[in-house]
Design a protein around this nucleic acid. Sequence first.
DNA 1: TATGAATGAGTGTTCATTCAT
DNA 2: CATGAATGAACACTCATTCAT
Lengths: 238, 238, 238, 238
Amino acid sequence: MTDGKSEANRDEQIIDIGLAAPVDNSRPRVGRDSEGTKRDILLAAMHEFSEYGDGGARIDRIARRANANKSLIYSYFGNKEELYARVLREAYTQIRAGERELNLDKLEPREAIRALMKFTMEHYLRAPWFLRLLATENLRRGQTVRQIDKISELQSPLITQLKQVLDRGVASGAFKNDMNPVDLYILMASLFYFPISNSHTLPVVFGAQVTDPKWREHYLKSVQDMVVRHLENAPGGA
Amino acid sequence: MTDGKSEANRDEQIIDIGLAAPVDNSRPRVGRDSEGTKRDILLAAMHEFSEYGDGGARIDRIARRANANKSLIYSYFGNKEELYARVLREAYTQIRAGERELNLDKLEPREAIRALMKFTMEHYLRAPWFLRLLATENLRRGQTVRQIDKISELQSPLITQLKQVLDRGVASGAFKNDMNPVDLYILMASLFYFPISNSHTLPVVFGAQVTDPKWREHYLKSVQDMVVRHLENAPGGA
Amino acid sequence: MTDGKSEANRDEQIIDIGLAAPVDNSRPRVGRDSEGTKRDILLAAMHEFSEYGDGGARIDRIARRANANKSLIYSYFGNKEELYARVLREAYTQIRAGERELNLDKLEPREAIRALMKFTMEHYLRAPWFLRLLATENLRRGQTVRQIDKISELQSPLITQLKQVLDRGVASGAFKNDMNPVDLYILMASLFYFPISNSHTLPVVFGAQVTDPKWREHYLKSVQDMVVRHLENAPGGA
Amino acid sequence: MTDGKSEANRDEQIIDIGLAAPVDNSRPRVGRDSEGTKRDILLAAMHEFSEYGDGGARIDRIARRANANKSLIYSYFGNKEELYARVLREAYTQIRAGERELNLDKLEPREAIRALMKFTMEHYLRAPWFLRLLATENLRRGQTVRQIDKISELQSPLITQLKQVLDRGVASGAFKNDMNPVDLYILMASLFYFPISNSHTLPVVFGAQVTDPKWREHYLKSVQDMVVRHLENAPGGA
DNA sequence: TATGAATGAGTGTTCATTCAT
DNA sequence: CATGAATGAACACTCATTCAT
C-alpha cells in the first residue's frame, strides 16, 4: 500500500484517452520539439492522475511514459500541483469538446432526450478516466477545480442543448415538466455516474451486473422511459 | 501536493462516523485493554481513510488519533493494506446496520418508496465518509473489496425491504413495473450518489446548488415522483 | 562547484569542536539511546555547517558522521533550517560557556586586559568553526540568529567581566578612557577576528604571515600595548 | 533552506558594485556584442556570488540578470567554478583600483593615517559585496584565490601609500613605532572588518549599534586616536 | 554568436515498517 | 501488552551542464 510499491504493481492497463495524438513510445520524439514534449507530458499526466489519483501519481512514471526527462516536467509545468491543475482543466475541456458535437436540433424532443441519455452513458463508458479524475478531485474537496481559471465558462454544451430541447418540448406541449437544464443534466448524469464509477464494487457487493452490456442496454432503456415520462408529466402532478 | 504537506493542511473536519463508542482522547486508555485499543484504532483508521483516501492516509495520524502506539497498529492489523481492508469491511457492516433499522411494513407501497428514497438521501448526507470510501475503493479498482470475506453476505437490508415493498406493490396492483430490487437500489442510489459525492465540483463547474438544503428538498420530491411513477407504469409501456 | 561534487571532495579535516563527548564513530552507539543520538547529530551538524556553510551542508553527510539514520534527523530536529538554528544556538551557548571560566578578579586591570586579549585570540584559534558559523550567518544576513529565542540573554560573560575590569581600572585611576564594555568587546574581537577568519586569503594576497605563531605572538603583544594605552588615555585626549 | 527556495526569497537588494557599465536590462543587447555580453555576465555574477555565496549562487539567476543565455556563460567562462574565480579576481582588481585614487602625499603623517582609516571604513561600507566575497572565499579555505594568477601583484595600493606615510612619519620623528605596512594594513582592516561584516549578528546578540551612523562616527574617532597614538609610541615602549 | 531544449546526479523530506526493550 | 527508536526505500524538486539547431 505504500504508494510506490503496491500501486506500481497495478497492471497498467492502457486507457485510450481519445486524443488526437496519443503518446507513442515506439519511436522516440525527435529531440527539440518543445510543444510535442509538452503535449506528451500532459497526456501522460492525464493518464497517471486518472489511474492513481493525486496522491498516488508519480512524476517519475509520467516522465517515463511521456518519454521525457523529469526535470522538463518542472520547467514546463512548475510542479505536481500545477500539473494536476492543467490535467483537470484539460479533462474538462476535452469532455466538453466531445459534447459539443451532438446535433439534436433535428430530433423530436422525446427522441432528443433519449439520444442525450444514450450519449451520456456511452460518454462515461468511453472516458472512465474522466470519472476517475472527478472522483479524485472530489476526494480533494474541489481544492483545485476552484482555482482553475474560467472553468465555468466552458460549461457543458450539453446544458445549452438541453435547454433548447426542453424549450421545444414545452412549446410543443410534449413536456409539461418545466425542469431547469442543470437539474436535468444532474439527473441524467446521476443515472449513469453511479453504476459506472462504482463498477468495481457493485458486482462484488450486490452481484449487480453493471458491467454486462446486456444489463446496460436494459438499464438505459428503463431509465430513458422513466425520464421521458418524468418530463411529460407536470411536477407533483395529478 | 506532497501527501504530507498539502493534505496535512486540510482542516480536519470532524466526521461523526456514528459508532457506539467514539475515540475518547481525553483520558488515555489504561494500559491493558486490547479490545478497546483495537476499536479505537479502527475508528481512527476509518476516519483517516475516509478523509484522505488510501494513498493519503497516514499511519502516524491514525496512531495519534487513536491515542495508540504506531507499532500496535501493526501488531493488531498487520499492515496498512490489511488495515484498509478492515476499514472497508467495517464500513459496509455499519452502513448495512444503519439500513436495518428501517421499518416499512406498515406503509403503503408508494409511501414506502418515498420513505426509502428520503432515507437513502439522508443516509448519504449523514455518511459522506462512506461515499468517500466507496470512491477510494473504486479508484483502486475494487482491489480490496474483492478479497473481503463474505462481503456479499451482509447485502444491503435495503434490498430485502425493497423486495417486500415491491412485492406488496405488485400484489396490490399499485405497481406494474416488476423491477428487480437490486436494480431499484441502483436507481435510487444513483440519484443521490452523484450530486452528493460531486458536491465539490458541481457548484464550481455548473453553479449547481447541490449543497443547498432547499435544492435538495426540491430534488428529492421531484425524483420521488419520478420513481414512483416509474413503478406504477408497465415497462416500455403504453 | 556543484555543491555535492567539489565540496564533497574537500578534505574533511577534523575540527575539534571541544565538546565533552565528540562523535566517536569507531564503535557504534548502542542502539536505542535517543539522547545520545540526538547529541551526536547535533555535533555532526555543527561540524557540517561550520565546514560547508548553510547551503553546502548536506543532511546525508551529517547522518553519516553522526552514525545515524537520515530520517532520525528529521524526527528530532524538524528540518535542515531548524537544525541549523539549533546548531547556531548551541554554538553561541558553548562559546559563552567557555568565556565564563575566565577569572580576572585577582588581576590588576592592565594585566586583566592583556589576559582577556590573549584569551580572545586563543579562543578564536581554538574555535575556528565558530568564526565560520558567524561568517555563514552573516552571509545569511542574520536570518536565523534573529529568530533564536532569548539569544541575547546568553550575552557574552566576557562583557560582564570586561565591565568589572573597566570599573576597577577607572576607580584606581589606571584607566582614563571610560569605554563601554560592548565597544571594548568589539574592539578586541575585531583585532583578532579579521586576521584569523581571513587566514586563507591574507597570506596569498598580501603575503601576510597571519598563520605563523611567531607573527601571532608579535601581533598580540603589539595590540595589547595599543589597547592598554588606549584605555589609559582620556578619549580625544591631550 | 533548500537553496532554491529560501534563498530565492531573499529580497534581492540592489548592490551598486560601482562599475563603469552596469547591466542594462531595459533594451536587450543586440546580438553580436561578445565583449558586452561577457561584461554583463561578469557583473551579474559578481552580484550573485556576493549575494548568495558560492553554494547559493545560481547560474540561472546570473543569466537572467545578465540578460544572457545560460549556455553563453559556459562558452565564455567554462563553468561555475571558473566563473567564480573570474569574479574573485575582478573583485580584487576593482577594490584595488578604488584604493589607488587616494592622494595622501600632501598630508601630515598623523592626518594621513586618520584619512586612511576613514577611507577604509567608508570603503567597506560602500562595498559590502566585497566583504561578502571575502567571507565566502575564506569559508572555501582560499581554494580559489590561491589559483588566481598574479593575484599578489595587484597588492593593495593602500600598502604602498601606507609605506610612504610611515616612512615620512618616522623620518619626521612623529612616529616612533616602525610598523611594517602590511601589519598596519591588517590592523586597520581588522578594526572595520569585524563590526561591518558582522553587522547582522552583533545587534541581535549584543545589542551593539554597529549599524548606527552615530556609533560609527564615534567608533572611527576612537580608533583613529588609538592607532595614531600607537604609532607615536615606541613598541613595548616605556 | 546565440538559443532553448534536454539531461542526470543529486538533495531535502516523508512514511510504512521493523527492532529492542 | 506496549513503547519509542531506528530504518530504508521512495519521492518531489533543483541545478549545473550539455546538445542540437
